[in-house]
Structures are given as structure tokens and as C-alpha cells.
Design a protein around this nucleic acid. Structure first.
Lengths: 96, 96
DNA sequence: GTAATATATGAATACTTGTTCATATATTCA
DNA sequence: TGAATATATGAACAAGTATTCATATATTAC
């Protein structure tokens, strides 16, 4: 299978979104349902700023979705591909 | 789902293996079957050195497997998880 | 209006990573 | 044995990235 450079870059960017432990832990938390930025930051002992920066990247790659309610923003997994990628990767690292 | 830091790192490392366009194109080529280092390098217009460096990383993450025959080394996709991850990611970037 | 809270963003820094170049190892052939 | 070929590896440099800190925006409460 010969992949165009453009498509290869798109694919690499997708996997890059999942290539950091902080982002993986964010997504793991979101697997249970939507959470606010503060709740995510508290849950992972990260600053809100760091979380916010990471969420931006995940949002731009359509891995998570934001829902604003009052002054809070609730994040959730964007689409099913994401949870399947996560689960498949999780299975892979289990068997080692 | 609360993930241990260690498991998050493992998962991130797995996805990191797929987070570069050159590696994605290597894996795409290998989806059709095993190939030598030179054939891969030729197919992607990369130096053998660059290919070899990348293959080492993929090998260490158990994404590809090496088979030595004479002075050539033939690489192939290591296990089914890998092709499934690749395909799932590919589907995701198609729908955009 | 002001104060307080939640999130986002830009710049700077420290860290990681992919490639190149030079060199090393391994194998085949004469 | 020595020359040629295939691959691997170490060091170095350039480019990319995650976090922190300071600051900005937006919303609610008073």
C-alpha cells in the first residue's frame, strides 16, 4: 500500500495526538463521560493551563469535543473512532 | 477510567511509534508483505540509514519483525493489532 | 459597575526527536 | 584472504513539543 505524503502526514498527526502520556490520561478520564477542565486538571494533578493547552490540540484533531455551560467547559470524546483507537492500543500494551 | 502513569506512558509510546509520516509510510508499504531495508528505502526515497533508524524503533515497540536472509533483512508487520490500528486510523482521517 | 471564577492563549524554556554523516558489523563472492 | 554489498549504529544538529508563567477573555454574583 503506497500512501501519499499528505495522507501519511494526516495519519501521523492523528497518532501524534495520542503520543503523550498526559493526553492519554485525559482521554482515559473522558472515556467515562464528559468532564470540566478543572475536574480534569484535579484528576491528573496538572495545572489548568497545561490541560487547556492539551485539550486544544485534541479538539483541533477532533478527538474531543467541548460543550460550554456557564463559565465551565465540559469536554468529551468526540467520536467512536477515538475510543476504539484507545481501546485497541490499550489491548496491545496489555499483552506484553 | 483512571490510568496508571506507567500504563499511560506505555500507551503513549505505542502511539508515538506511529506518530511520524516516515514511519507511517514504512508501515503502509509493509501492509502488503515483507520487504528488505533497501526496497523500503527506495520505495520512500529515504536513505537506508534513516530507514534503519526508524525500523529499530518500530522493532523495539514490536510493531515490525525482522527476518535475516543472507545479507538482507526483511521486515514485516509484527502482529495483527498493528494493522488494525493502522486501518482504524486510516478510516478516521478519511472521514474529514 | 467591580470582584471572583473558569478557561484560553502567547512567549519562553527545557526537553525530545528525525535526519545526516561517518563508521562499524555481517555476509557473500572471487 | 580481500573487495563488495546490506544493514546497523553513534554523535551531532535542526526542528518540534510540553510545560510554566503571565496575561487575556468570558461569565456569574454582588
Amino acid at each position: 500500500m503506497k500512501l501519499s505524503e499528505l495522507k501519511a502526514i494526516k495519519l501521523a498527526e492523528l497518532f501524534s495526538s495520542l503520543s503523550d502520556a498526559s493526553r492519554i490520561r485525559l482521554i482515559a478520564l473522558l472515556m467515562d463521560g464528559e468532564m470540566s477542565v478543572r475536574a480534569l486538571a484535579d484528576g491528573l494533578s496538572m495545572t489548568e493551563s497545561a490541560v487547556s493547552h492539551q485539550l486544544r490540540g485534541l479538539r483541533q484533531m477532533h478527538l474531543v469535543r467541548a460543550r460550554k455551560s456557564g463559565r465551565q467547559v465540559f469536554y468529551s470524546i468526540d467520536d467512536d473512532h477515538v475510543s476504539r483507537l484507545f481501546t485497541l492500543g490499550f489491548d496491545h500494551v496489555q499483552h506484553e
